[in-house]
Design a protein around this nucleic acid. Sequence first.
DNA 1: TTGTATGCGTTATCAG
DNA 2: CTGATAACGCATACAA
Lengths: 344, 344
Amino acid sequence: MGNVTIKDIARICGVGVSTVSRAMNNHPDINQETKDMIMQAIEQNNYVPNNSARNLKRTDAKAIAVLVKGISNPLFNRMIKVIEQITQKEKYELVLQHVDDNQDEVTVAIELEKEKRLRGIVFLGGYFSHSEEKLKQISIPFVLSTIKLEEEDGRQEYASISVDDIKESERIVEYLLQNGHRKIAVIGSRKDDESIGWLRQQGYRRALERYHVAVDEELICYVPGNLTPYSMEAGYEMTDQLLKKGKAFTALFAMSDSMAVGACKAILDHGGSIPDQYSVVGFDGMDVAQYYNPSITTIRQPVEEMAEATIRMLLELIRKKNKSRHLVFEGQLIEGQSVRNITE
Amino acid sequence: MGNVTIKDIARICGVGVSTVSRAMNNHPDINQETKDMIMQAIEQNNYVPNNSARNLKRTDAKAIAVLVKGISNPLFNRMIKVIEQITQKEKYELVLQHVDDNQDEVTVAIELEKEKRLRGIVFLGGYFSHSEEKLKQISIPFVLSTIKLEEEDGRQEYASISVDDIKESERIVEYLLQNGHRKIAVIGSRKDDESIGWLRQQGYRRALERYHVAVDEELICYVPGNLTPYSMEAGYEMTDQLLKKGKAFTALFAMSDSMAVGACKAILDHGGSIPDQYSVVGFDGMDVAQYYNPSITTIRQPVEEMAEATIRMLLELIRKKNKSRHLVFEGQLIEGQSVRNITE
DNA sequence: TTGTATGCGTTATCAG
DNA sequence: CTGATAACGCATACAA
């Protein structure tokens, strides 16, 4: 049984292939009876159309793609859910494509645009620094969502949705400062990070600067090569190291909630208490921050709202109802039980 | 600039399309100079071959697909990483495809097999109850990984990798019983669950039975419709309800580590202490169990080993080196700080 | 070593 | 309403 094709169905039904095609694609110009007959034959013979062949011919496909950089970000899952709902409601097919960390997302996008005849693309996550020339090869609208942009104000060529990582990071460190903390450790990404890790560190530095607190480089920890950035394990190991060094600090800013969890555990394992001896804050607004013991003060990114804005903007661009814009969302400081005011 | 095709490149270079094709696909029979010239033209004109057209023609593609059911299982991410590594080493292309909860994974598989000319398929997660007739439509080897199977001993038609959810679940409940607990609450999946939620509950029942402890149905909690099964939130809400009801219990078995986290928080919010007043155990072996405060006793599923076994078995099937088998992996009981022996 | 022609499985076009 | 036929973009057998 070499794969059954449209021709086989046509032969079996004694009709032309175009009639079979019409039956499948809900074309108006077809007799209901012949259509029923054909659909039945399709069922019985387990005929499944070949998508590659379809994509090759079809001109009116309504598909958009979401390219997700990196695999394991739980925040993205929440965003994708929202995007799925809306695209479905708008009768678009959604192509969800994961892009490896070492793959180039724009290259993937260009291939996919041709392969699937896409109408629009959402890029989710990662660091975006591509030449204008390369971006021009994407001939359909696209939106960058939660992506660190190369230039300060963003470029005209694309739309973007994001939070201001520097500002939000500054805010939460400022919160620690307001609670009397001066020796604030920070655990973050790799030393050579140019993406959100770098931005969040900038926020940290700015906050200290505004409070005229000198930055102690020894309190800034970078993920060693053998650990996964932003993971609980990384948070644990870095904090463990810091404590073993005996370096004094009263508060710790973890650049992700997962790291904050690891940091808390390390402190507790060292016999420390939170928030009495050490205050800890995170970043992201994941569930685990709320449910940890103690619950962890963090900056919540409004992921659902951002996801909705992302897909709505893309649809507007596809319908040419709007120009590319750069939308920045506000984070929300969520107070947990992990910070103590040490001036009291 | 309507998309540039292989013909355009051929025309630009003054050669035939087949020569361009040969240049791209590293064919041996081609002059190095013309190849260089062509590759340069491809670069300059930003030519990207259309994958749909390729798939249509190609017969020798070496691709396998992983179909992931449901979107947000962190355990799967760890498995996929392993699978990616191995497939890459074995020079297979990997197609990662997410399948919606309400989509039929076998239908997706059949389509994808034709579209991408696959050589093998891995199904990850979900509940597998498909007719033999439908499965026969998949004409390439496939392996079911961490999937609850319809029949006790599995079928000949497919290979499978799994842990014995009943047995492992029974083991951890037995662990609670050994620690003197008799009033053991369990928080799990939906009431109508026929998949792992049902299996893990069976394990719970068997353990009690073996210890001659009567099952108290009031201690068995089901996720209400508005909550996401296995989530922290669900774990919190269900435990909160249970505590508010005032129903007495000394230990709680959560069917996932995420739920265990939520359960712990609820207990703590009610002023309870872990493990002094309440013992808590989870299931899965996620990072969060280890890093929670207190760390949570759980059953670790050997996901990395299972992932490796999955892909190795698929490759063997593709090479016809082996028959379909059903491999069952042992879980590992990891003791945390969340269980107290109440007989002491 | 290279070019020409054919077909992969569909859909679109056009004539019946 | 229906059927033959020409693309879609590429790989490949075969001829040169």
